[in-house]
Design a protein around this nucleic acid. Structure first.
Lengths: 227, 227
DNA sequence: CGCGCAGTTGAACCTAATCAATGGTGGTGG
DNA sequence: CCACCACCATTGATTAGGTTCAACTGCGCG
């Protein structure tokens, strides 16, 4: 009944061409991508759907003028690569080394339609994804730069926390410009706000990708309220 | 096999309390809402899913400080009211008189999981909705005020066009402040940009909710390019 | 060790928000 | 039916917050 491993109809040759940066790829339904490697490009034929098993993945759109919007950072369990058109309309890249489960489009849709458990998971993911995007709208439409940064750190705390107790250490695997394009700000503004939070004692960092949160409550207050 | 009309488990009394503005409501799976009427409130128990049959519906979130974000304007065929939590996390109101089909949550989820045709429609709607939201992100993150207005008018042209040929007339049933909260701008900026488009001859309007597009190409150029 | 890119900080500018005033319109009640 | 009232829409003046442009630092990797 479980069709996850039914890949008899899969066009492996196509896959290898469009995803040249795969480190390992066998007839299992998983593959690894190195840090910085691509999963699919805007314009690629929409043939596969992916689930993150390990690592962090970035989905983005680049505009004609060269500016870029990051739609999501995806973590283990998340699904990437759904499209409502015959091609992908975004780029998808690995921010860290990552492992993905891969489904042919047909297999994925079959599972959603015929496997009630899979369908339930998909429904849950979808409604959660829509909900997440809605919250993101609110942020981008209404929040100030300090609020956005604080909110971003709070959200990341829930997913990337390294240590359990106080002080909280978190990994920010993405670049400053990635954060900027995700929050709808410029890289400079992101830097300034992080510096401000550091100056005020809410956070500290020696390496730019490893942040220690000293005052999580202060961070939450800034995120919600505008202090 | 078709369970659309299976409403045996429905709690009608609950519905009448939370949706007091229903004009007509019988044991059919449809109901009418008057212009301005509410469909659900933020915090309401998540018990129903709705499909728009006629009219235009607005889904919004209001922040603690009173400001508001409009997540979508929904048109016939669209689904509203999905939530990943036990309660609704947004308000939903009718902008015009509207007719909705109503599903209990259980019925809706059953249909998605057990009726392949329904599932296919749902999948299509969902991926399209995610795609629409992604485009909206790009707009809110990167586009200038003139671009946003032009883009909004272009999108609306595809859904609300009243006349077939040139000149194109379109109905903007929502208020200026609704447009503003949808585009991530203020009401004043929306007015100014519409006035500017009128001054430049791209559009004209005598009544604020009925716009004539004189130069659709110019509108598209502004939306894409920044002229 | 040095090159190049990521990150940080400063100064000037610019766009849209805010504050404020006025004009218009639709709906209601006398 | 008309007059009034409340709300919506428009326009102007000022301000603020974030972008842009520019210089400099520092880290990582060959």
């Amino acid at each position: 009944m479980n069709q996850i491993s039914d890949f008899s109809g899969m066009d492996w040759s196509r896959l290898s061409t469009f995803s040249s940066s795969c480190r390992a790829f066998s007839k299992s339904n998983r593959f690894d991508v190195k840090k910085g490697g691509n999963i699919f490009f805007n314009g690629d034929e929409y043939a596969f759907v992916f689930q993150i098993l390990d690592g962090v993945v970035r989905t983005s759109k680049t505009l004609p003028d060269g500016s870029r919007v990051i739609l999501s950072f995806s973590y283990p369990g998340d699904i990437v690569g759904l499209s409502d058109k015959p091609t992908h309309c975004s780029d998808c890249d690995a921010i860290t080394n990552a492992t993905l489960r891969i489904y042919t489009k047909a297999t994925f849709y079959n599972l959603v339609q015929n496997d009630p458990d899979f369908c339930r998971l998909f429904l849950k993911f979808t409604t959660k994804e829509i909900s997440r995007m809605q919250d993101h709208f609110v942020m981008i439409s209404k929040k100030s730069a300090p609020e956005r940064l604080a909110l971003f750190l709070c959200d990341t705390m829930e997913r990337e926390r390294i240590t359990a107790g106080d002080p909280i250490k978190l990994s920010l695997p993405m670049k400053r410009s990635d954060i900027a394009d995700f929050l709808g700000l410029t890289m400079e503004t992101v830097c300034r706000q992080l510096s401000r939070l550091r100056r005020e004692g809410a956070i500290e960092f020696a390496k730019s990708k490893l942040i220690t949160v000293l005052q999580p409550k202060k961070l939450k207050a800034i995120a919600e309220n505008q202090i």
